Computed example of a mutant assay.
Amino acid sequence: MKNIYLNTGTINEVFNELETSFKGILNSNNNEFKLALDSDLIKGNIDGVTFINGITSVQVSLTFFDDTLLSIESFSKSSVLFAYCTEGTMQHSYGISGYKSTLRKHHSRVVTTKRSINTILHFKKNKAVKFFLIKVETEQAAPTNNSLISELKKTFLQKEPNYNYHGLQNLKIAAKFKQLTAVTAHGMTGHIMKKEILESILALEIEDNTDNLLKISQAIRRSTLNQINELKKIPNFIKNYAVETIYSKVINSKNRIIIK
């Protein structure tokens, strides 16, 4: 079992740390980073891009040659982290001994936290895995596209102190990630295209989570209404039962008198 510890910081600091730790080859330009790794422990690529609106996306395509734990330092309380698996499986937990949940192909996870505990990603030996991490910093974002940041805060940061949602396959989100990986344009054009696709993915995540909460709310409401309706039936049932019982007794009494 191998343990890798990753301190949070700017995307530039994170990629430089990975390059140094695993003797990779890093190319960076215009807030975009491409890291190639080929060591006794890891082989594959990690690509990252960051935008002025507080959004950072990291695309990971790796194979680990030993069972590996990647420990990520606790991120800020104003951050929202989205993980989306496109190939293989991995596990997530808070702390090494925390509960492990499995992230499978086309499944997503949304995490916010006020814990001062590391996020742990668990990888199996010789199992290729591909996934995206999208981190949104809601407090330091530039004033552009405030509506999206505002909706992210309202949906994920203001409802629960530790939001942890495991989503199943969403075909719309899957299609957007395919578009993202298919972007070949470079420079400003490619940067803008990636930004727009990532923003549309985040909008779909908001919609997916909002719909999920709405469905739960509606289910609870329907259940409550059904219980109320059942309770309303009880007085009528008792009334009808009482009338039928009295009527039955009267008829039986009359019959007994007639027989005598």
Rank of each mutant, 00 (worst) to 15 (best):
Leu70Trp: 11
Leu70Cys: 02
Leu70Val: 15
Leu70Ser: 01
Leu70His: 12
Ser71Cys: 06
Ser71Lys: 13
Ser71Met: 06
Ser71Glu: 15
Ile72Arg: 02
Glu73Phe: 08
Glu73Pro: 03
Glu73Thr: 11
Glu73Asn: 08
Glu73Ala: 14
Ser74Ile: 04
Ser74Asp: 09
Ser74Lys: 11
Phe75His: 08
Phe75Gln: 01
Phe75Tyr: 11
Ser76Arg: 12
Ser76Gln: 14
Ser76Ile: 10
Ser76Gly: 15
Ser76His: 14
Lys77Val: 05
Lys77Asn: 06
Lys77Cys: 04
Ser78Met: 07
Ser79Thr: 12
Ser79Arg: 12
Ser79Asn: 15
Val80Glu: 00
Val80Lys: 03
Val80Ile: 15
Val80Arg: 00
Val80Trp: 04
Leu81Asp: 04
Leu81Arg: 06
Leu81Val: 13
Phe82Ser: 07
Ala83Asn: 02
Ala83His: 03
Ala83Lys: 03
Ala83Pro: 00
Tyr84Met: 00
Tyr84Lys: 01
Tyr84Pro: 00
Tyr84His: 14
Cys85Phe: 06
Cys85Arg: 03
Cys85Ala: 13
Cys85Ser: 09
Thr86Gly: 11
Thr86Val: 14
Thr86Ala: 01
Thr86Trp: 06
Glu87Leu: 10
Glu87Ala: 06
Glu87His: 06
Gly88Cys: 10
Gly88Gln: 05
Gly88Phe: 09
Gly88Ile: 11
Gly88His: 05
Thr89Asp: 12
Thr89Cys: 02
Thr89Phe: 06
Thr89Lys: 12
Met90Arg: 10
Met90Cys: 14
Met90Lys: 08
Met90Asp: 00
Gln91Tyr: 04
Gln91Ser: 11
Gln91Ile: 00
Gln91Trp: 05
Gln91Glu: 13
Gln91Cys: 04
Gln91Lys: 10
Gln91Met: 11
Gln91Asp: 07
His92Gln: 09
His92Ile: 15
His92Leu: 14
His92Ala: 07
His92Asp: 03
His92Met: 09
Ser93Pro: 08
Ser93Ile: 13
Tyr94Thr: 15
Tyr94Val: 15
Tyr94Gly: 04
Gly95Glu: 12
Gly95Gln: 08
Gly95His: 07
Ile96Asn: 12
Ile96Thr: 12
Ile96Lys: 14
Ile96Phe: 14
Ser97Tyr: 06
Ser97Met: 05
Ser97Arg: 04
Ser97Phe: 09
Ser97Gln: 11
Ser97Pro: 00
Gly98Cys: 12
Gly98Phe: 09
Gly98Trp: 12
Gly98Asn: 10
Tyr99Asp: 01
Tyr99Gln: 05
Tyr99His: 00
Tyr99Ala: 01
Lys100Ile: 07
Lys100Leu: 04
Lys100Ala: 03
Ser101Ala: 09
Ser101Asp: 11
Ser101Arg: 07
Ser101Asn: 09
Thr102Gln: 03
Thr102Phe: 00
Thr102His: 03
Thr102Cys: 03
Leu103Ser: 02
Leu103Phe: 10
Leu103Lys: 02
Leu103His: 02
Leu103Trp: 05
Leu103Ile: 15
Leu103Thr: 03
Leu103Gly: 08
Arg104Gln: 13
Arg104Glu: 13
Arg104Asp: 10
Lys105Cys: 06
Lys105Asn: 09
Lys105Ile: 01
Lys105Trp: 01
His106Val: 01
His106Phe: 12
His106Gly: 00
His106Ala: 02
His107Trp: 05
His107Arg: 02
His107Pro: 03
His107Asp: 10
Ser108Lys: 08
Ser108Met: 13
Arg109Ser: 01
Arg109Val: 12
Val110Lys: 03
Val110Trp: 05
Val110Gly: 01
Val110Leu: 10
